[in-house]
Amino acid sequence: MSAPAVDVRGLRVELGGSPVLAGVDLTVAVGEWVTVIGPNGAGKSTLLRAVGGLLPAPDAVSLFGTPIRALRRRDRARVVATVAQSPVVPAGMAVFDYVLLGRTPYMPPLGRESAADVAAVHEVLDRLDLGGFGRRELATLSGGERQRVFLARALAQGATLLLLDEPTSALDIGHQQEVLELVDQLRREHELTVLATMHDLSIAGEYADRLVLLADGRVAAAGPPAEVLTEELLARHYRAHVRVIPGPHGPHVVPLRRV
């Protein structure tokens, strides 16, 4: 039995004096896809930031059996890659150079890229069907293409744990499916572990092995989508009036107008 990819024990985070996470436990097995759901302000992004090492969380977070505080930054960057909710798109930067930034943890601190780094970027671009985009300016790409480039940068990082914060919130429904299918395919091919946050509950349930429902900084429910996406739980924590219909890959959550 190997150590889980992510192991969070009793994580507490305060931002500006008020508790955002009040004792969160979370385990993600290697190769698993777990999606964190929850109403606005529940602490989803904060949880992801803590797992990604962006918040001081001494002792509460372990990655692949190693406490995150024992990892040096560069080593951590080779293990966990984050795709932020709306990443900065630097003006004038070409797609190739953007993806090459993902190789930063492999370059000497003040040095430059090696031939292996360049080859790794070409390979990732080809794998994501971005081979012809290398010289294009990132800012000129469409939303769906950009999301693929963001993923490419995370993959170029060579990390096995992928943190995706609202990876599809800027995309139309077709591109949402395209991107998530791609993530799932990469996960299977490369034994990646995926920890994501999502707002769209039906889509969250279709792609995740397990869902974690976060409310008021605590885990309110966790388990397979069918156990978490229930009318009763969603009514209690989202104050939402929904109908949940079973589907082949997970329940469909349909919002209903209150009469």
Binding site: F64, R78, V79, P105, Y106, A120, E123, V124, L155, A156, G158, A159, T160, H190, E191, L192
Partner: peptide, 8 residues
């Protein structure tokens, strides 16, 4: 670099 042979 951990894990995926072809990515890293």
């Amino acid at each position: 670099p951990a894990g995926t042979p072809d990515a890293s």
